[in-house]
Amino acid sequence: MNPLVDPVGVVHYLVVGAVLFTAGIVCMAVKRNALGVLMGIELVLNGANVNFVAFGSPVLRADAGPLAIDGPVIALFVIVLAAAEAAVALAITLNFYNNHSTVDVDRADELKG
């Protein structure tokens, strides 16, 4: 299990993915800055991506099988969709800033624009 001596396995990547995912969740939860929340989302998606790549990596596991293609492809989709999501989220943030003169999400407590 020691990554310095043994070959790195899937579980090592999973741990990294878990840390990134958790950090992202916390970031989404505690940040009051809309951009901070957005960064949390990016971290979460990134953590998921690490897992996808790890499960599909023929380097990390001998039994990757068809996942060798599926994993990276899904990761690619996630990256592309994350970029799309960031674009929309930024547009929303911008609108929010225009309407409320702030990017503090705690102030976004009314439904009318």
């Binding site: 790549v53 990276p72 990256i79 994350a82 970029a83």
Partner: peptide
């Protein structure tokens, strides 16, 4: 993380991550 992807043999995903993800964050 892109480096991790390179290490896992997913070079294309790693480069993609550098280009799109990091680029997207740049806009952020």
């Amino acid at each position: 993380t892109a480096g991790l992807f390179f290490l896992a043999g997913a070079e294309f995903v790693g480069a993609m991550q550098l280009m799109i993800y990091v680029g997207g964050t740049l806009v952020l």
